[in-house]
Simulated scan of single mutants.
Amino acid sequence: MRAAGVVVALVAWQVAGLVWPQVTSSPVRVAGELARLAVEGDLPGLVAGTVGTLLAGWAAAAVLGVAAGYVIGRYRTAAVALEPYLVALYSAPLIALVPLMVVWFGIGERFLVATIVLAAGVMLVFPAAAGTRQALHAYGELARAYGVGGRRLLTAVVLPGALPHIAAGLRISVQRALMAVVVGQFLVGHPGIGTLLSDARARLDADEVFAVALVALAVGAALTGLVGLAGRRLSAGRAEVGA
C-alpha cells in the first residue's frame, strides 16, 4: 500500500508538472536536475559539508541542552530563574535572532555552529528537565535510602531514567538543527544546501528548488531515523545501565 501511494503521488505530480511546469515542476525534471547538480554543482560535497556542520553544532547543543535540563530538573531555584528565558528562546522565531548572531559570530562556520546550538539546544532542555524530574520522583527516595548521591546519582539514576525523554528531544532537535543550518546558509551565503536553495530562488528555477528541497528532506529523514534508532537501542538497555 505504501508503494502504491508513492506511485500515485508521483503520477499526480507528473501530471501537475505538465499542466503547471513553472509552478510544480515534475519528477522527471527534478531527477534530471539532481543528476546535473551531482555532476556540475558538487551536490555531494555541499551535502557533506552541511551535514558535517550540522553534526558539530548538534553535538554541542546536545551536551549543553541535556546539562541545562538536568540542572533545571534537579534544582527548583534554577528552574524559577532560567525557565522564563528558555521559554522565550523556544518561542522566538529563528529568523529574528540571525542578525544578532551575525553581529556576534560573523558569517563563517562559527555563525552556523552557534545558530545550531541555539536552535537545537533549547529543544533539549525541556525534555531533559522533565525526564530528570520524573526519574528523581520515581527513584530519588530509593537512591537516598541506599546512599547514592553526587555523580553516581546522575549516571546511575537520573540519566537512565530520563533517557526516553532525552531520546525524544534528540529526534526533534536534529530536525531543528537541519532547519537552522539550511536557513543560516540561505541567509549568509555559506556553501551548502541553503546556498543552493538561495541560488535557485534567485533564478526562479522551480526544478532546482524542488530538487534541493528533496535533498534536504532526505537528509532530515535519514538523520531523524538514525537518531530514533539509536534512542531505541539506548532505551532498551537502560535497565542494565541502571542496574
Score class of each variant (00 low, 15 high):
Leu112His: 02
Val117Pro: 03
Leu112Val: 06
Leu170Glu: 08
Ala96Asp: 12
Tyr90Ser: 07
Leu159Arg: 03
Val98Phe: 13
Tyr139Gly: 00
Ala180His: 00
Leu100Ser: 12
Arg152Ile: 01
Leu159Pro: 01
Gly149Tyr: 05
Leu142Phe: 04
Gly121Ile: 11
Leu170Gln: 05
Gly108Ala: 12
Leu118Tyr: 09
Leu142Pro: 02
Gly150Glu: 13
Ala145Arg: 07
Arg110His: 08
Ala114Leu: 01
Glu109Thr: 11
Arg110Lys: 10
Ala96Ser: 13
Val98Leu: 15
Ala145Asn: 11
Phe111Gly: 01
Leu153Cys: 12
Ala119Gly: 09
Ala177Leu: 09
Ser91Phe: 05
Ala119Glu: 12
Gly150Trp: 09
Gln175Asn: 10
Ala128Val: 01
Tyr90Val: 03
Ala128Gln: 04
Phe126Tyr: 15
Gly161Val: 05
Gly140Tyr: 05
Gly106Cys: 07
Val113Leu: 04
Val113Met: 02
Tyr146Glu: 00
Ser91Gly: 08
Gly149Leu: 02
Val182Trp: 03
Thr115Phe: 01
Ile166Asn: 06
Leu136Arg: 00
Ala96Met: 13
Ile107Cys: 00
Ile116Cys: 06
Ala180Gly: 05
Thr132Leu: 10
Val98Ala: 15
Ala114Trp: 00
Ala119Tyr: 04
Pro99Phe: 01
Leu153Arg: 13
Val182His: 06
Glu141Val: 07
Pro160Cys: 14
Arg176Gln: 12
Gly106Lys: 05
Leu178His: 04
Leu178Pro: 01
Gly121Gln: 06
Phe126Ile: 15
Val102Trp: 06
Arg133Val: 15
Ser173Thr: 08
Phe105Ser: 10
Leu153Met: 14
Gly147Glu: 11
Gly106Met: 03
Leu154Asn: 10
Gly106Leu: 11
Pro93Thr: 10
Phe126Asn: 04
Ser173Phe: 10
Ala135Thr: 07
Phe126His: 12
Gly149Lys: 05
Glu109Lys: 07
Ala177Phe: 05
Ile166Arg: 02
Leu170Trp: 06
Val157Pro: 07
Ala92Gly: 05
Ala143Asn: 08
Val125Gly: 06
Leu97Ile: 08
Leu170Asp: 08
Gly161Gln: 12
Gly169Ile: 04
Val158Ile: 15
Leu142Arg: 05
Ala162Thr: 05
Tyr146Ala: 00
Pro99Asn: 03
Met101Phe: 13
Ile116Trp: 04
Ala168Arg: 01
Ala130Gln: 13
Ile172Gly: 14
Pro164Ile: 06
Arg176Asn: 13
Ile116Phe: 06
Val102Asn: 08
Leu124Ile: 13
Leu100Pro: 00
Val174Glu: 03
Val122Met: 03
Val103Thr: 15
His165Lys: 04
Pro164Met: 11
Thr115Gly: 08
